[in-house]
Write a protein that binds this DNA or RNA. Structure first.
Lengths: 324, 324
DNA sequence: CGGCGCTGTCGAAACGTTTCGTGTAATGCT
DNA sequence: AGCATTACACGAAACGTTTCGACAGCGCCG
């Protein structure tokens, strides 16, 4: 029995008699044969590895994404590898280099920045099919799966306006990040539509970290004209805001109505149960890995399409009608 | 310039002149050369991949572990791959097989079962250096890094006893799982030491899922003689217990004092802020990957050592002195 | 001054697959 | 019956590394 015949029998890549197929199957069982992935990779020039790059796996949002993608990959015979950049460019480079060394078949990236320079570096570093999730990066031809971020914060803000709030603060993200820009825009848009003036002092800058947003909230609430409501554009910052509030001996929604973007498992167990704008995470994650596997399987190049998912408001206890 | 010379220059695996080293470095830069991991793997018979198998990456506990291990791996030039078994044996087999196909250099496993049969299957499937984290599996020779689980629940239970509670329920895990057994033992031990009788009806069985524990808590609290306190042996079940309580219109610590095992990021934002027994996760994760990398690097076999870390009580708001 | 050991470089082999061209026996067609 | 076709099996080559033995030049020592 020639090696090549066994290979053909295993992969059905050439006509093989039933007799041989049976013998090969028997031998596989007997010897506990498992194909050598590296050899397959080497020969075929492509691995069955998918890289997933997220800001931080510790964030339930990204963990959920990872779980879904892992599942889909496994079912399709691929292996996913998750990495946290921690918003660190150097780390991101290192990860990208190691993934390149492994000749991953494809990449799903949730970028932490979206400026042109970062995009250029990404494109220079990446030579495999790639889908961008959650965020849009300037002018690369990648396929993108994202939320309607403008709608998300508009929903949140309009909910607060509807409750009578007029001084609404917003915890923004890193400036220059498309998601942050869009989410700020939604906040502004809601004001415009309601004919409300915006106060720039109420635009608190954050960096997606709890500590920083806690600090911002403490400052604004101790200030001369504190807001009565807050829109937080990401879940970690929402938690940070709650911490900041608590540090001051204040609480939501009594002293501040809070609406967060992005629901998560424990949001209804938090004190108070968080009113949030829910992101349809599962469909988004599934779609992104779906597109990627299709690109890999059909060897088709990126089309630069952008798929946009719609958010949904979930009212719980962290928002209340403005008294007085 | 011979290929072998370039290889020697890159790896410093043989004496090479400075001249050649410089030329190789230059060429690497110019061509954007990145070594082909699969080829290295194939030739050397070993990859630089580490597999991490956890029950569920969505659980903040395991996400934190994954993050730490990813970091250590990356710094050591390894790549970690995380997988969630979801307590599904078939899935676990599939993962193990694919990891074997990749010829991973080592494995860190947080098992979901610890019976002998499962252990046997594991050992049959695994042929690489392996460290068991969090849980002990019967009679394999693996190195193990674990918590002093008996102490953990003893601490929790003694805290409740100290607050005057006498009817203390416990949400146990899957029977047969070493961790669950030990944690139940700690609960029993605390009773013994305090000279308290145990009521077997108060030993609620759980499966580490929120839904199930919520159900258990609803049942016991609606029963004839509800407990006044509860020890939950895992964080997801603690959250489930809170849900169950809330479904009944009850709250902690007013109707039930709750202590959970395992702290996590949001535990102090939960309503009420959770009193927990903290697991020194970071040191444990670091130690486990440390041992693994050492085994891989020094090619030393498993020694079957068991390292045990000590838990610590963190009192917050979910426990209160029994009134009356 | 001839052999020895050292330094630096080279070529070939091997790792475990897949692919492709070739060979061969059997089958179908005229 | 003879030829074309098909079905199946085979061997060799190639993927990109690392490793190992060979070898050339060179200084050193006896």
């Amino acid at each position: 029995m020639a090696i090549s015949t066994a290979s053909a029998a295993l992969n059905r890549s050439a006509p093989v008699s039933d007799d041989v197929i049976a013998k090969v199957a028997e031998a596989v069982r007997e010897l506990g044969y498992v194909p050598h992935g590296a050899a397959q990779s080497l020969r075929s020039g492509q691995s069955r590895l998918i890289g997933l790059i997220v800001p931080n796996i510790t964030n339930p949002h990204f963990a959920a994404v990872a779980r879904i993608i892992e599942n889909v990959c496994l079912n399709a015979g691929y292996l996913s590898m998750v990495f946290s950049t921690g918003q660190d460019s150097e780390r991101e480079d290192q990860i990208l280099r190691m993934l390149r060394q492994q000749r991953v078949a494809g990449l799903i990236i949730i970028p932490t920045r979206s400026d042109a320079e970062h995009g250029r570096r990404l494109r220079a570093e990446i030579h495999v099919p790639t889908v961008l999730l959650d965020m849009y990066v300037e002018g690369l031809g990648y396929d993108v799966v994202k939320l309607d971020n403008v709608a998300a914060t508009r929903l949140a803000t309009e909910h607060l306006i509807g409750l009578g709030h007029r001084r609404i603060a917003v915890l923004t993200g890193i400036p220059g990040l498309a998601t942050s820009i869009d989410r700020l825009e939604g906040y502004l848009d809601a004001h415009r539509r309601a004919g409300l003036a915006v106060d720039e002092h109420l635009q608190l800058k954050g960096d997606y970290e709890q500590a920083t947003s806690a600090q911002s909230v403490r400052e604004i609430m101790r200030g001369a004209a504190p807001p009565t409501a807050l829109v937080s554009i990401s879940n970690m910052m929402t938690l940070g805001a709650l911490h900041g509030l608590r540090d001051l001996g204040l609480g939501a929604p009594k002293h501040l109505s809070i609406v967060g973007i992005d629901d998560f498992d424990f949001a209804d167990l938090i004190d108070p149960p968080l009113t949030v704008v829910r992101v349809p995470l599962a469909p988004m994650a599934e779609r992104s890995i779906g597109i990627l596997l299709e690109m890999i399987g059909m060897k088709r190049p990126a089309r630069g399409t952008v798929e946009i998912f719609q958010p949904e408001l979930v009212v719980r206890g962290s928002t209340a009608r403005l008294r007085g």
